[in-house]
């Protein structure tokens, strides 16, 4: 059975390799993967096949890595866009200075 995780990585050398390596050594196969920059670090989304291993234990093992800021078990597939992704994508279509002007105008009004 496939389980999905959303892992926030700190901006540290080797963070991605260390995290993926641990996941595979703990008996989980990575079946899908998506990675993008997120703030200073990276957001890693994974679909894993645990072959009877306990995902909650894996989450705690990943969480204790110093390179990992957070681990969350999620329902969506790695390639699926979330509401937050859509909001972020829409925001990226509008130039930052326009948003800034709009916010200033709203504040003044």
């Amino acid at each position: 059975m496939s389980v999905h995780f959303e892992i926030r990585l700190k901006p540290a050398e080797g963070a991605l390799l260390r995290t993926l390596g641990l996941i595979q050594r703990r008996g989980f196969a990575v079946t899908e993967l998506a990675l993008r920059e997120a703030g200073e670090g990276q957001l890693l989304r994974l679909a894993l096949d645990g072959r009877g291993r306990c995902p909650a234990v894996l989450a705690r093992q990943v969480e204790r890595l110093h390179d990992v800021a957070s681990v969350e078990r999620v329902e969506h597939e790695p390639w699926q866009a979330t509401v937050a992704d859509c909001a972020r994508a829409l925001a990226s279509l509008v130039p930052a200075n326009v948003i800034e002007q709009q916010m200033t105008a709203e504040a003044n009004s």
Partner: peptide, 16 residues
């Protein structure tokens, strides 16, 4: 050695 030791250290660094 950073790569070689990834699975056997609690953490590791390359000082740049």
């Amino acid at each position: 050695v950073f790569g070689i030791t990834l699975p056997i250290v609690k953490h590791s660094y390359i000082i740049r």
